[in-house]
Amino acid sequence: MKSASVSHLVGDSADDASTLSQEVAFEMLSCRRRRYVIHCLKQRGGAVELRDLVTQVAAWENEVAPEVVTYEQRMRVYTALRQSHLPKLDDGGIVTFEEHRGTIALTDAAAELEVYLDVVPHEDIPWSKYYAGLGILSLGFVGTLWIGLPPFSFVAPLGGALLVTLLFTISAAFHVRYDRRMRLGGDSEPPVAEVEP
Rank of each mutant, 00 (worst) to 15 (best):
K2Q: 15
K2F: 13
S3L: 09
A4I: 07
S5F: 09
S5L: 07
S7I: 07
L9S: 12
V10Y: 09
V10E: 06
D12V: 12
A14K: 08
S18K: 08
S21E: 10
S21T: 03
V24H: 01
A25R: 02
F26R: 01
E27C: 08
R32Y: 15
R32D: 15
Y36V: 00
C40W: 00
L41V: 09
L41P: 05
K42Q: 11
K42Y: 07
Q43G: 05
R44H: 15
R44K: 13
G45H: 13
G45Q: 14
G45E: 10
G46P: 14
A47Q: 14
L50M: 05
L50F: 03
R51C: 02
L53P: 00
L53S: 02
V54K: 03
T55S: 04
V57F: 01
W60Q: 04
W60V: 03
W60K: 02
E61C: 08
N62G: 06
V69G: 14
T70V: 06
Y71V: 10
Q73H: 13
R76Q: 07
T79G: 09
A80F: 02
A80W: 05
Q83P: 00
Q83W: 00
Q83T: 00
Q83K: 00
H85M: 12
H85N: 14
P87V: 10
P87K: 08
G92R: 01
I94R: 06
I94F: 08
V95G: 12
V95L: 10
T96W: 08
T96I: 11
E98Q: 14
E98W: 10
E98M: 12
E99V: 07
R101A: 12
G102P: 06
G102T: 04
I104T: 15
L106A: 12
T107N: 14
A111T: 02
L113I: 11
L113R: 11
Y116T: 00
L117G: 00
D118V: 03
V119R: 08
D124S: 14
I125K: 15
I125W: 03
S128M: 06
K129R: 13
Y130E: 07
G135N: 13
L137S: 13
V142K: 10
V142M: 11
T144P: 01
G148H: 09
L149F: 13
P150G: 09
F152C: 01
F154L: 10
F154K: 15
G160P: 03
G160F: 03
L162R: 07
L162S: 09
V164I: 09
V164C: 05
T165V: 10
L166P: 05
T169H: 15
S171I: 14
S171E: 15
S171K: 15
A172E: 14
F174L: 15
V176N: 12
Y178I: 01
D179P: 04
D179Q: 15
R181E: 09
R181C: 04
R183E: 08
V192I: 15
V195N: 02
E196W: 02
P197G: 01
